[in-house]
Design a protein around this nucleic acid. Structure first.
Lengths: 175, 175
DNA sequence: CGCTCACATTCCTATACTGACATGTCAAAA
DNA sequence: TTTTGACATGTCAGTATAGGAATGTGAGCG
């Protein structure tokens, strides 16, 4: 149910329509919580039913701007401070590592080197974002930079690990 | 659909019943791909229908041992070498970081310090596993150790990040 | 004016996942 | 003998997620 709170968080910053929110998702939150349009509109409706947001204005093309309510802000704060985050561990790329023994060592090394490249590329992409976005000193941007730094560090750790692991597998084969 | 391939991978090692697989999941793969018993039995049935595994023996209490078929081994190798892993980014704990501006700086620092502690604890737990498991030189155990090393490095990176981020937020408040 | 494109929302199907519940078997202890 | 507990599998309802089709609106341009 994190989508629910992600939307609350964005609306706590300022009112927006479903369409706006979708774009903001794609540019900032997609790295940590991708969402599709059908999910998003459905969740907005449920949030409105629950009184956590309300339709604040309607524009052209049935555009509906939603604003967070007091109840919504309370729910957001509650989620941030009192609800234990799920440290979900689902990791497709790492799951495969458990089964690399089932293929040739050369293929295993290929896999790990490929992973290393992907992590490096991802780090590069994040660095691009860091350099090109016009960050301001708003709370949202400050926090986004903290999250981005996490991405940089974790992708670096993963890349270094994958290179090390490739060396391990290659070493076992030689020795 | 990674569960499907996780089961194939375990059965590629040696035949096992659903119950065995469930236990193996809980002890080794749960860190990267948790699965419930209902999912697991359902998937076994589908794998058998697809001809990727077959019921090899039946024991007491309706126990059914499944074995991987040649088609199953081919599918596993295909998945490992040719199917792009999903670098799923869903991260509840990091999502919250985007919205920490919505609570008091002190609460934000609390959140980040708590995260740091959790990552350190998780690293400790992994180190415990590394030290207590009787690792052998089988392919499976070697690969499991590679995966475990990933956990150690990534949790260390996350812990260091969280401590740094807590400092950043605290620094902003003072300055 | 008519065209096109970006805007904006709704609905649909299918699969994945969670958590709980239901059913039954066998071995060994009390 | 009864009971307990580990073994072993199956089903169900509810929710989450993916991905795409369908629908319609308004602004700008030739």
């Amino acid at each position: 149910m994190s989508l629910r709170h992600a939307l609350l968080g964005l609306l706590a910053d300022h009112p927006a329509s479903g369409y706006d929110l979708l774009k903001r998702f794609d540019t900032s939150l997609a790295f940590v919580w991708p969402a599709t349009q059908s999910q998003l509109y459905g969740e907005l409706k449920r949030l409105a039913d629950a009184g956590l947001i309300e339709a604040a204005a309607t524009g052209p093309r049935r555009r509906t701007d939603y604003a967070i309510t007091e109840a919504g802000r309370a729910e957001l704060a509650h989620w941030l401070t009192e609800v234990e985050p799920e440290h979900s561990r689902r990791n497709d790329a790492l799951l495969r590592v458990f089964f690399l023994w089932a293929v040739d060592p050369a293929q295993a090394v290929d896999y790990l080197e490929r992973e290393a490249r992907l992590y490096r590329q991802f780090g590069e992409a994040l660095r691009q974002v860091a350099d090109t976005v016009a960050w301001d000193e708003s709370g949202f941007d400050r926090c986004a930079r903290l999250a981005l730094e996490n991405g940089l560090r974790v992708s670096e750790a993963n890349a270094a690990w994958a290179e090390w692991a490739a060396g391990e597998v290659a070493g076992d084969t030689d020795g």
